[in-house]
């Protein structure tokens, strides 16, 4: 997939031909279906969304290992980015995880009682971990970025704390895949296990890209601002 094809004046439907999986991002941008022959620029304008940011996120989600350039980072609309990240958190918690949970509970019913219980417990632990992870970002990191956007500096927080605390929430998902594929008794719901594995795979990829946006765009922006604020006070 070549990113040269992606530009604001291209037809929105061509973007989805380029990578059909991008359709999973639309609800998070509140872009409704039925875009007819409108361009990316027009659709973004309707949603009051920066087309640059939208295309950048499409690239990160379409091209494996995509490197966000300095220039791209610098022209990012941070307000729009924060909205997208928050909407993604909601999407993971309210749509993806419950979906996986439902399948897991079916699988748990087909296992022995204690295996089933442990499987449920494993999922609960994972869910709590994810909630805590998102909570920290929503309550501490994102508000801090908003303070920086207003040209102010908060005394008690620096972005490097986020960098060092940014935990990996994909690990448990990978463990779950190993357990589902390799270690549960073969006779307990094989079809459901295969389908849930694909769901987990997609979620893991999605969260990976999500973290990439946070690690590169948020951190870059905050570092830049912090340096600026520091220079001013000297």
């Amino acid at each position: 997939m070549n990113n040269i094809q992606l530009n604001p004046s291209m037809k929105f439907s061509d973007l989805l031909n380029f990578n059909p999986e991008l359709i999973l991002l639309l609800s998070r941008f509140h872009i409704p279906l039925g875009f007819g022959e409108k361009t990316v620029e027009e659709i973004c304008a309707e949603q009051n969304l920066s087309a640059n940011l939208f295309l950048l996120i499409c690239k990160v989600y379409s091209i494996k290992g995509y490197k966000i350039s300095r220039e791209e980072a610098e022209r990012t609309d941070m307000g729009d980015l924060l909205l997208f990240l928050s909407d993604s958190h909601r999407y993971y918690l309210e749509e993806r995880l419950p979906h996986i949970a439902t399948h897991l509970m079916h699988i748990a019913e087909k296992c022995t009682a204690s295996q089933g219980r442990l499987l449920q417990q494993f999922y609960e632990e994972y869910r709590n971990e994810v909630i805590a992870h998102f909570d920290y970002e929503e309550k501490t990191v994102f508000p801090y970025i908003r303070v920086l956007m207003e040209g102010k500096q908060e005394a008690s927080f620096r972005i490097r704390e986020f960098e060092s605390n940014h935990s990996n929430i994909e690990e448990k998902l990978q463990d779950l895949v190993s357990i589902l594929l390799k270690y549960l008794p073969p006779e307990s719901s094989p079809q459901e296990r295969i389908s849930i594995t694909m769901d987990i795979y997609h979620l893991t990829e999605d969260i990976n890209r999500h973290s990439q946006l946070e690690d590169h765009l948020l951190v870059h922006y905050a570092n830049m601002k912090e340096r600026g604020n520091h220079d001013q006070t000297e």
């Binding site: 295996q115 442990l118 417990q121 494993f122 448990k172 463990d175 779950l176 190993s178 357990i179 270690y183």
Partner: peptide, 21 residues
């Protein structure tokens, strides 16, 4: 095993009857 986290390993140990619940 392809399992890294402690809770994943615990689940593995249980499924393989290495430990009791």
């Amino acid at each position: 095993t392809g399992i890294k986290t402690l809770s994943g390993l615990t689940l593995y140990a249980l499924i393989n009857h290495l430990i009791d619940e």
